[in-house]
Simulated assay, not measured.
Amino acid sequence: MIISTIASHSSLQILLGAKDEGFRTRLYVKPERRAFYASTRLTDELVVTEDMSAILKDDGIVIPHGSFVAYLGLERIEKAKARFFGNKRFLKWETTFELQDKALDEAGIPRVRVIEPDEVEPEKLYFVRIEGPRGGSGHFIAKGSELEERLAGLSEPPRIEEFIPGVYLYVHFFHSPILGRLELLGVDERVVIADGNARWPVKPLPYTIAGNVGVALRESLLPRLYDYGLAFVGSYEKARTARNHRPLRSPLCLRR
């Protein structure tokens, strides 16, 4: 058996995990990235191509990650005959705010408040996000008095959210219907280019993600986060049963 994925996002973790479990690996990589990925020695087969859709005809087990929708498009993924690990319909959830909000609301998990344009107050801070998996690209923080000018230059519909200061954590889970359990695997914090404003507060920097830092979270917080994970899985299972969809058997991440 061979594990296949696209050279981007979290492919190095996928390849390392596959190797640790004794699987052979195959990686689809663009020509300009070949040298780096070849140097890692984590892949048995390196498929160098400009067309990442070649993976949709792969004969191994395809492990998707956050760049799949951006590279391939959701419709092509859902129609693909390749064998995907997990439920590929679940990828749709990371592409639309509506599905994300509905999932969190049905699970009873608190989420950030969405602000309508007529609710904006001049002196308050707001976080503006663009829909879809984009690694934070296009997101920004601005005062209400700046929003009209900043929003006018956007080519895609934005979403205005209440700005909540604090630590932004990403909690990683794995749900196995075979073993009947949910595992909390770890927590990380995103490093974004805008963090540089603390050192150079002259011009607002973009919110594009530059990396991740592992977090050893206070143990007293872990049970609550685990309960959120259980609630999310329970909500998904209830919804998918009503729609006759496949069960959730894959990693998932909640942002807190």
Rank of each mutant, 00 (worst) to 15 (best):
H9V: 10
S10D: 09
S10F: 11
S11G: 04
S11Q: 03
Q13P: 00
Q13T: 14
Q13M: 11
Q13G: 13
I14M: 02
I14Y: 02
I14P: 01
L15Q: 02
L15V: 11
L15K: 05
L16C: 12
G17K: 07
G17L: 13
A18L: 14
K19Q: 14
K19C: 13
K19N: 15
D20I: 15
E21V: 14
E21R: 15
G22K: 07
G22S: 12
R24F: 10
R24T: 10
T25N: 08
L27E: 01
Y28P: 06
Y28W: 09
Y28G: 03
V29F: 06
V29H: 07
K30E: 10
P31E: 01
E32Q: 12
R34I: 05
A35Y: 06
F36G: 09
Y37A: 06
Y37V: 08
A38L: 07
A38W: 06
S39W: 03
S39H: 05
S39I: 06
S39T: 08
T40L: 11
T40G: 09
R41I: 10
L42K: 09
T43M: 10
D44S: 13
D44V: 15
E45Q: 15
E45I: 15
E45Y: 11
L46G: 01
L46K: 00
V47N: 01
V47Y: 09
V48M: 00
T49H: 04
T49K: 00
T49L: 02
E50Y: 12
D51N: 09
D51S: 07
D51M: 01
M52I: 01
M52K: 01
M52C: 07
S53Y: 05
L56Y: 09
K57L: 12
D58L: 11
D58N: 10
D59R: 11
I61D: 01
I61G: 00
I63W: 09
P64L: 04
P64S: 03
P64V: 01
H65R: 04
G66V: 09
G66L: 09
G66C: 06
S67I: 05
F68W: 05
F68S: 05
A70L: 06
Y71F: 12
L72H: 04
L72Y: 02
L72E: 01
L72V: 02
G73I: 00
L74F: 03
E75S: 10
R76G: 13
I77P: 03
E78Q: 15
E78S: 12
K79A: 14
K79Y: 00
K79M: 11
A82C: 10
A82M: 13
A82K: 03
R83N: 13
G86R: 04
G86N: 05
G86A: 04
G86L: 08
N87V: 04
N87I: 05
R89M: 14
F90G: 14
L91V: 08
L91G: 10
L91A: 10
L91F: 12
W93D: 15
W93C: 13
E94G: 09
T95C: 14
F97N: 13
F97P: 06
E98L: 08
L99N: 12
L99H: 07
L99A: 12
L99E: 13
Q100S: 12
Q100G: 10
D101G: 06
K102S: 15
A103H: 02
A103T: 08
D105I: 03
E106R: 05
E106K: 07
G108A: 04
G108C: 02
